[in-house]
């Protein structure tokens, strides 16, 4: 098991962690999820038939575990709201969302990071896999279990959506500068 882990770690750990991190935006959660991914992968490693590439297989597992986590968080948020707990608790994830690596970046990068979060989960997955993880259209389709054309369409819409979001942000900034808001 250790040997398999070592090899997987060597080849994929940083990419997987980064993918998960950009999806959940919480370091502790990403650490836990990546471990859960390894557990699933190591348990199923013997059964891996090699029909897909190892890389897309790993990403696919990571995606499932991450989506499960996000859904669980959403349910939790709803429950918290139902029981009228303070809003602040629900916003913990977002408050902690700016990673150290981004703190020193330009404002435009931070804007993009925040705008990305506002896209739908499907769009986020495509954008992260395609641009941040540099996966090809075919690889992204394999990870998501979609057709390549669906990946292309979602990617196109996601970029348009991001532009729209960033336009709004820039507009707001201009208004702040003008003292309108």
């Amino acid at each position: 098991m250790k040997d398999s882990f070592d090899r997987l770690y060597e080849e994929y750990h940083h990419s997987l962690f980064q993918f998960i991190y950009y999806m959940v935006r919480n370091r502790e959660a990403a650490e836990d999820i990546v471990q859960e991914v390894y557990i699933k992968v190591l348990k199923a490693y013997e059964a891996f038939e090699g029909k897909s590439s190892e890389k897309t297989w790993l990403y696919s597992i990571a995606r499932h575990v991450t989506i499960d986590w996000i859904r669980k968080q959403n349910r939790r948020k709803k429950k918290l709201l139902f029981f009228t707990l303070s809003e602040n608790e629900n916003e913990l994830v977002d408050q902690q969302s700016l990673p150290e690596e981004l703190v020193s970046q330009k404002e435009s990068v931070k804007e993009l990071y925040h705008a990305l979060k506002k896209c739908t989960i499907q769009q986020q997955q495509v954008l992260i896999l395609r641009y941040i993880q540099s996966l090809s259209i075919a690889e992204t389709a394999a990870v998501l279990g979609w057709t390549e054309s669906k990946v292309k369409t979602t990617q196109h819409r996601a970029i348009k959506g991001l532009k729209g979001l960033l336009d709004q942000t820039s507009g707001l900034e201009e208004e702040w500068k003008d003292g309108i808001v």
Binding site: D6, Y9, H13, H14, F17, Q18, Y21, Y22, A30, E31, V34, Q35, Y38, P99, E101, L102, Q105, S108, V109, L112, Y113, L116, L127, Y131, I132, S134, I159, K160, L162, K163, L166, D167, S170, G171, E174, E175
Partner: peptide, 30 residues
């Protein structure tokens, strides 16, 4: 209100340049 500074190409380029976020734990600890 002025028009956005972002074009679709710029967004794509910037996404490709997003900073790498690394797991700070050691392999053995994980």
């Amino acid at each position: 209100m002025e028009s956005s500074k972002w074009t679709e190409e710029e967004i794509q380029k910037q996404l490709e340049k997003m900073p790498s976020v690394k797991d700070k734990r050691s392999r053995e600890l994980i």
